[in-house]
Each structure stands twice: as structure tokens, then as C-alpha cells.
Design a protein around this nucleic acid. Structure first.
Lengths: 142, 142
DNA sequence: TCTAAATGTTCTAGCTGCTAGAGGTTCAAG
DNA sequence: CTTGAACCTCTAGCAGCTAGAACATTTAGA
């Protein structure tokens, strides 16, 4: 049986984060010692690894909750898991597109800056006037 | 003179957001009517446009604060604005790299899923076992 | 001039996904 | 038996807004 600290080390998760996952019901309440400290078994290690890996792939916690649920029911159709993953892929691609536009614009504004004083700084000028932009960028909400 | 609502419409900003910017000192306290309602002039329109455009380009509010400060002092060197923009470009490129790795992995896991039941779902399998991954993805903190 | 609707006001709390700190308890090694 | 590391709970904070309650003001039409 592992302490919360060892579980954390094993899965690359901060102790606080594990407790947070428990609090929001993503991790089950573990057994406790007589003194009230948490102790974890292999099942929990697997579950936390699953969560962490999903987070690394950018899945939001709510999606992970669904994925865990599917994983707990081996007889259910794979279709849902697939569609959650596809949704996530769409999100990633959307964000990539946005970032690409940002990069273009940032590069351009840096490139065109001649380095005088701020009065005729191209960077500031572009920020002041959206119409100078060539791309349809919008990072808000990305 | 504009009401807060009209300013919002003009700049594509929610009313609450404008008040929030005022609260954190990004927008100055505007004049008020006798009844206590905010009224804005052209200067504020420009300032809010600057802020919004910077946000669209992904600059964090603290960076925008610096940029506004530079913009208010036309005699200062352009160098700082340039370096803020370069920093932002680095951030964008870093995030793009991460997303690229995520996309690869997500695509692969979706592609390999044959669509049976969750017991042998490739998506879930990959999430369970990080070692099946080919890329060094990590969206956490991205 | 009166009234009603639209818009304004402040204040508080919520969102995601953690993270940090205070102040106290338990555990394991020596 | 003591010590120090690791644990406990609880609260608050981060970015950057967003939403709602409960009330006030403004403006246009009758």
C-alpha cells in the first residue's frame, strides 16, 4: 500500500492534485490508516495514471470522467470513447489553426519593427490598428 | 460620449469585461454622469481596442499593461515592445509544438481503434498505457 | 409629464485545474 | 522516546473573465 506521496511520485502528480481529484470524485476515496492517512493500492495507481496520461493529451477533466466510466464498463461500445477522442482532436486542430495565425502576425510585426522609439514602433502600431493585420487571428478562448 | 454598452459593442467587448479591466487598472476610471453611469470618449475607445487586439494575439494582461505603458511614452525605446512581442511569439511556438505532438498521438489512437467494445478499445488502451505512445506529448501547462 | 423598457450600477460567486499556505497530526527511523 | 518528514483539513489564490441578484438611471413613446 502506498502513501499519497509515493503515489504522487509514481504517477508524476502533486499530492494536492491527487486530493483535488478525490474531492471532485475523479479518484475514489481510498482506505485510511488508523491515524487517518490515505493508503493506495494498484487499482488506484492505474486509475491515476490513466487520468494523468489523459491530461497530458489535453483531455478536460469532464471528458476524462466519461472515459474512466467507459473503461470501467468493458462491455459497452467503443464508439463513445472514439467520439470523445475525435472531439479532442478537433479541439487541438482548432487551437493549432488559431496559433498558426497568431504566429504569422507576430512574426510580421516583429520583422517590420525597425527599432527606433515607441512613437513609430511597428509592434505598437499593429496593436493599435487591427486593420493592419493580414490574418484572422483570435486567441481569445483558445 | 459613449455608454459602457456602446463602447462594448464598438470594441467587441462584454460590459462586464470592461468593468473588470477598470477594476484591475488596465482601463482608467472614466467620467460619470450625475446618476453615476460611466461615459467614455475616443481615447478610451482606442485604449480598449488596443487591449482587445492584444488579447486576440494572445498577450497576457500583464504584458498588455507593459505595452500600454510603452505606448503612453512615445519617447521610450521600441526595444521593450519588441522583446515582449518576441516572448509572446516564443510562447505561441512552444504551444504549437505541444499541440502538434498531441495531434499525432490522438490521430494514431483514433485510427487504430477498430470499434468493438471498450474491453479492447485502442483509445482506452493507449490512455491506460503511456508506453504505447510514440511522441513526447504534454499538454499540461500548455 | 408619466411610464415602461432598456440599460446602467455594485457586489458576490463561479468557471478550469490546479497550487500554496496555515496550523496541526501521524508515522517511521534511530 | 524523540525527532523530522510526511501527512491531515481548510481556506484562499492564480488567469481572465462570466453570470446573477437586487437595485438605479436613462431614454423614448404616449
Amino acid at each position: 500500500m502506498l502513501t499519497i506521496g509515493s503515489l504522487g511520485k509514481k504517477t508524476g502528480t502533486k499530492v494536492q492534485t491527487i486530493r483535488y481529484y478525490e474531492q471532485i470524485g475523479l479518484m475514489p476515496e481510498p482506505g485510511r490508516t488508523e491515524g487517518g492517512q490515505r493508503r493506495y493500492g494498484d487499482t488506484q495507481v492505474d486509475r491515476l495514471s490513466f487520468i494523468r496520461h489523459s491530461r497530458q493529451l489535453g483531455f478536460p477533466l469532464e471528458a476524462i470522467r466519461e472515459l474512466l466510466d467507459l473503461s470501467d464498463n468493458p462491455d459497452r461500445s467503443c464508439h463513445e470513447a472514439d467520439s470523445i477522442a475525435r472531439r479532442q482532436l478537433k479541439q487541438v486542430e482548432l487551437r493549432m489553426d488559431r496559433l498558426k495565425a497568431l504566429r504569422t502576425e507576430l512574426k510580421r510585426m516583429i520583422h517590420e519593427c525597425s527599432g527606433g522609439n515607441t512613437a513609430d514602433c511597428k509592434v505598437l502600431e499593429v496593436l493599435r490598428d487591427h486593420s493592419e493585420c493580414l490574418t484572422d487571428h483570435n486567441a481569445i478562448g483558445a
